[in-house]
Amino acid sequence: MTATAMPAEPEILCIDLVRIFVAQGVEVQALQGLNLRVERGEIVAVVGASGSGKSTLLTILSGLDRPTAGAAQVAGRNLLAMSDRDRVEFRRNDVGFVWQQTERNLLPYLTAAQNVVMAMVAGGTARRSRESRVTALLDLLGVGDVRDRRPGEMSGGQRQRVAIAVALANEPRVLLADEPTGELDESSSADVLEAIRSVNAELGVTALIVTHDAGVSDHVRRTVQLRDGRTSTEVLRRTELDDDGSERHIAEEFAVLDAAGRLQLPADYLTALGLRERVRLALETDRVEVFPDRPTAATAAAERSADAGAAREAGR
């Protein structure tokens, strides 16, 4: 709503997001200053190893958990300042979720259509528009033929596509999906990811998919990699036409730079050059150079002008 007025405002914005779980004297830092920006209408995959903080990020974005520190904003709402009433409104109108487990997405004793209606009833969608919207959504996701079946009578892929329909029942601006293909085989996974991509394209819904499935990168333009509770790298894909007219897929990997200038170097870079604790930086006119902590004549000049703080951070 406000986003349309200010096109520059992102649909999802996380700044220095920290989430610490404390219990019985044990402290677990699930998120350690995560930064993420997703523009309206974008489709983004967040990947990362187990324990990298993917699920924590998603529960915060979906309003099911609160961050310990930092700022988070989804669909124009400040997640830290939401009252319980706001939270209900947020879930009704602004976001839709798809989880990995069917039982979190669909009620086993309702049919596909009834599940979608249930979400509409919960979200307060007007009665008149329900019927047509149910049909439209199920058809859009290619599961119109199973509308009167219950989840137990569907394939895993169908279940997840119905789950997407349920998530979109109340026309949310943002779709959040947590491992939506976690229990599916390769071809079903592809179907589900394609379905998300098509609703992104057709309905303009901003989509954030959290997964450890590397295959997801083939279906989204932007893949954000989480490591140790932070965004570390991003892969952007684009398709170019060759001179001979054939399509060419280009994937470029980027390191993520936060507002304070912090940067994570990919692990294989660190090992290749033996980068440990400290590195040397050199600022050129069009780039920053990173050198191992071994003073050489060539780097001496650059070292003098390097930002000591940046060096300390980058060496971690």
């Binding site: 409104e89 947020f90 009704r92 979720f97 009620l107 249930m118 919960a122 979200g123 029942a169 109340n170």
Partner: peptide, 13 residues
């Protein structure tokens, strides 16, 4: 689970 699901879809607690 159904309650949690409905709540997550925006049903009022």
């Amino acid at each position: 689970p159904a309650l949690v699901l409905a709540a997550s879809r925006g049903a009022h607690p």
